[in-house]
Design a protein around this nucleic acid. Structure first.
Length: 508
DNA sequence: TTCCGACAGTGGGGTCGCAAT
DNA sequence: ATTGCGACCCCACTATCGGAA
């Protein structure tokens, strides 16, 4: 199949707003792609590469060669070139990589180049990713989408699942099994503003569990071999030797566990997330690092033990099995209750202990990939500050032409000005975007560039955030974590905004 | 007919490893 | 030694579609 066939379908998908219409376009193409190229087509049309990543980002895609006039590139040819680029990137030479990228784009028409640019940049923006592609695979193969989802949970990679469905139908999908040593798509959590709402979503009684601010890990053990995967299924076994050792000490030698690693201080309270992240992403001199900053692991789910797959069991059964397989010291603290007062106290306690909050889990739900639905619901406390808008950046995509991303500052009584604490684009409705664009242009002052409009510091906005962290980037040495807009405060003037002193008091 | 679950899009701060400067 | 880039940790929120109620 030619690349241009895929590009045309992607364009049709982009033009179609109805989801069923998008699915129709995708399924039509999947119906005519050859077995040898199905995996490539599915990957491209859900915004992925069969190679996952190839070491090429937006910067390596500047000044590309002139396009060709005739579209002749096949999917297989493009795929082979991308594999070559990945191999060269792994070996280091940026010049060689650049030459290969040029060769790839020199073989494409203008239309194909535009598609490839978005695909490699990781921003396909056609309104269809995995969720829509699952339905398209189901439609094209005649299999129920539940079978496709189930296979995706077990296999963790939709292009492989989709290709199997197209050639082998339902039997091929049902042939996927949990394989120890191969990562499963992780189950994710939705969120709720408070414990009561979370309990209502998950259904009482529910399991309430400490939400630790660390790194999600999926751990596989087969005999004496252990593998550790992240949420995006990267293998990070080599960075976490203490986790490997802990799992090797468990009585069972056939396990798939789900949990969180986190750096704790000697008194048991958590280090800031940055400390855990730094430790978990370091590959060099791990032996020394683990002495300085040991990581602890806390498991909360068990997907397999001693030859038995547990994914389809209700959560309460998996918990029971987990309790038998893992000693109490490696278990995430939890409480099963249907009483709001008890639940609220548990929440207060975990926050007082310095942790992030709770995950409230339905006792009956099986383990299912993706689906940030009602099965698991997270609850975290929320801080707010009244800050001043210092500037705004022009948005992209559906926010094109709107001033979107706000630069936020706290008042600095000593210096007499405002100190920037970060940016946010979250929480804005279309109406608010329109309003603030107009208002900011009225308040515009100082040097502007193509990206940013500076404004007189007069508008006060109420910002919600999860915490204050140490920042190497911002002038005050502090930045807000997960900042989002709650509302503008027309009743407040800049002189009434919160101060740096207040922000400092929130940083632990 | 209305409601609500699932999805995609729009970007945020921080860290490491590596190549080029 | 420093800088820029790519990849990947953590992530919240709104608009929209279409099936459920």
């Amino acid at each position: 199949m030619l690349l241009i066939d895929v590009v045309r379908v992607s364009e049709a998908v982009t033009r179609t707003s109805a989801r069923l219409g998008k699915i129709g376009h995708l399924a039509e193409l999947l119906g005519r792609v050859g077995a040898g190229e199905a995996e490539i087509a599915i990957a491209y049309l859900s915004g992925e590469l069969p190679q996952r990543q190839i070491g090429v980002g937006w910067r390596s895609l500047q000044d590309l060669p002139q396009p060709k006039l005739a579209a002749t590139a096949t999917l297989t040819e493009v795929d082979e070139l991308l594999s070559t680029i990945k191999a060269v990137s792994g070996q280091g030479s940026q010049a060689a990589r650049k030459a290969l990228v040029s060769r790839l784009f020199a073989g494409l028409t203008r239309q194909e180049q535009a598609f490839m640019l978005r695909l490699l940049g990781g921003e396909l923006r056609q309104g269809a990713l995995d969720g829509v592609m699952i339905e398209a695979v189901a439609k094209a193969s005649g299999a129920p989408s539940a079978d496709v989802r189930r296979a995706l949970t077990l296999r963790g990679w939709l292009p492989a699942v989709g290709a199997a469905a197209l050639t082998g139908g339902v039997p091929a999908l049902r042939a996927f099994r949990l394989e120890v040593g191969r990562a499963v798509s992780p189950m994710l959590a939705g969120s709720a503003p408070n414990v009561v709402t979370a309990l209502a979503k998950a259904g009482a009684p529910a399991s309430l569990e400490w939400k630790l601010d660390g790194i999600r890990v999926q751990v596989h053990r087969s005999g004496g071999e252990v593998k550790v995967f992240t949420r995006t299924l990267d293998d990070i076994t080599g960075r976490l030797p203490e986790l490997v050792e802990a799992v090797l000490e468990l009585p069972s030698d056939d396990l798939v566990l789900d949990g969180e690693v986190i750096a704790l201080r000697p008194d048991g309270r958590p280090h800031p997330f940055q400390v855990t992240a730094s430790r978990a992403s370091s590959k060099v001199d791990v032996a020394r690092l683990r002495e300085q900053t040991p990581l602890s692991v806390f498991f909360f789910d068990l997907l397999r033990v001693d030859g038995a797959d547990l994914l389809d069991l209700p959560y309460s059964d998996r918990q029971e099995a987990l309790g038998r397989a893992v000693p109490p010291g490696l278990l995430t603290p939890r409480l099963v209750t249907d009483e709001v007062a008890q639940a609220e106290k548990f929440f207060t306690d975990v926050v007082r202990a310095g942790h992030e909050g709770l995950v409230v889990k339905s006792l009956s739900s099986p383990y299912a990939a993706g689906r940030r639905g009602a099965g698991w619901v997270k609850v975290k406390p929320r801080h707010t500050l009244d800050l001043v808008v210092l500037a705004a950046e022009w948005g992209h995509g559906r926010r094109q032409g709107k001033l979107s991303n706000l630069h936020l500052g706290a008042r600095d009584p000593e210096g007499g000005g405002f100190v920037m604490l970060g940016k946010t684009f979250k929480g804005l409705t279309d109406e608010l975007l329109a309003w603030q664009t107009e208002r900011f242009l009225e308040l515009a002052e100082g040097p502007a560039d193509e990206l940013t409009v500076r404004v007189r510091p007069e508008l006060v906005v109420e910002i919600a955030f999860d915490g204050v962290q140490r920042s190497p980037r911002y002038p005050g040495g502090m930045a807000l974590r997960f900042a989002r807009v709650l509302r503008y405060r027309p009743d407040k003037r800049a002189e009434d905004a919160d101060t740096m002193e207040t922000v400092r008091s929130l940083m632990l």
